[in-house]
Amino acid sequence: MTAVRILLADDEHLIRGALAALLSLEDDLEIVAEAASGPEALAMARVHRPDVAVLDLQMPGADGVSVATSLRSELPGCRTMIVTSHGLPGHLKRALTAGVRAFVPKTVSAQRLAEIIRTVHAGNRYVDPELAADAISAGDSPLTAREAEVLELAADGAPVAEIARRAALSQGTVRNYLSSAVSKLGAENRHTAARLARERGWV
């Protein structure tokens, strides 16, 4: 029987090393590459052409969903799954839209993760039930893509002029987007709106 070839991508070396060691104990799984960032994950995938890419959601350079999106077009034979400690509803929806086959919290056991990798390799999906329930109850984001982008830039307290520069928009347009986002989220100001949107995984 041919082993399932796996790419592991996680910027936390200890977690990645532990996962690699535990998954390697399974006779039908083989770790062919490891990566510590989004760009490195893509580079490793191009070289090793794994069957399954196990991607951390938050990585330097490019997040797991961005990597999954690129792999979907470049290596359609590689199935992707996200393992995360930040399972927000918006992240789950983005991942599923990108063609990710599984969305799993980092609290799963190595044995369960191995089972999910086999499920994904067989062409099936797996979404953690709690994360799925949270996503359903949170509903879809009311924000447009531009409102979400501007709100994310406002999240660290940047002034309107700075947000306008970074988003390549006029200050008046930025104010309009922020005002609309605040109104849609029922928040008292843009900082509260940014926090609410972040908590729900919408930015």
Results as ranks from 00 to 15, higher is better:
residue 36 A to V: 12
residue 106 K to P: 11
residue 131 L to M: 14
residue 52 V to W: 06
residue 116 I to Y: 08
residue 74 E to D: 15
residue 94 R to G: 13
residue 151 L to T: 08
residue 116 I to A: 02
residue 21 A to Y: 07
residue 77 G to H: 13
residue 35 A to H: 03
residue 133 A to S: 12
residue 141 S to H: 10
residue 137 S to R: 13
residue 12 E to P: 00
residue 79 R to N: 06
residue 52 V to D: 05
residue 14 L to E: 11
residue 160 V to Y: 07
residue 65 V to A: 01
residue 149 E to A: 11
residue 40 E to D: 13
residue 39 P to D: 06
residue 157 G to Q: 06
residue 193 A to E: 04
residue 25 L to K: 14
residue 132 A to P: 02
residue 197 A to W: 05
residue 34 E to H: 04
residue 154 A to S: 15
residue 114 A to W: 05
residue 56 D to C: 02
residue 136 I to K: 07
residue 25 L to N: 08
residue 101 R to P: 07
residue 162 E to W: 00
residue 64 G to Q: 03
residue 43 A to V: 02
residue 171 Q to H: 09
residue 159 P to R: 07
residue 113 L to S: 09
residue 161 A to R: 14
residue 21 A to K: 06
residue 158 A to K: 14
residue 52 V to N: 05
residue 89 P to C: 01
residue 149 E to N: 08
residue 54 V to S: 07
residue 121 H to E: 14
residue 43 A to R: 14
residue 15 I to T: 14
residue 95 A to S: 11
residue 167 A to N: 04
residue 77 G to C: 03
residue 1 M to E: 13
residue 178 L to K: 05
residue 150 V to E: 01
residue 44 M to Q: 14
residue 193 A to I: 11
residue 126 Y to G: 03
residue 64 G to R: 07
residue 171 Q to F: 00
residue 43 A to I: 00
residue 59 M to C: 07
residue 181 A to P: 15
residue 170 S to P: 06
residue 86 H to G: 00
residue 114 A to G: 03
residue 62 A to C: 01
residue 187 A to E: 08
residue 130 E to D: 12
residue 197 A to N: 10
residue 35 A to Y: 08
residue 1 M to G: 15
residue 54 V to F: 02
residue 183 S to E: 15
residue 88 L to K: 12
residue 188 E to C: 04
residue 77 G to Y: 03
residue 129 P to C: 01
residue 4 V to E: 10
residue 111 Q to C: 00
residue 26 E to P: 01
residue 151 L to A: 10
residue 11 D to G: 04
residue 125 R to I: 01
residue 70 S to Q: 13
residue 150 V to K: 05
residue 132 A to K: 14
residue 164 A to E: 11
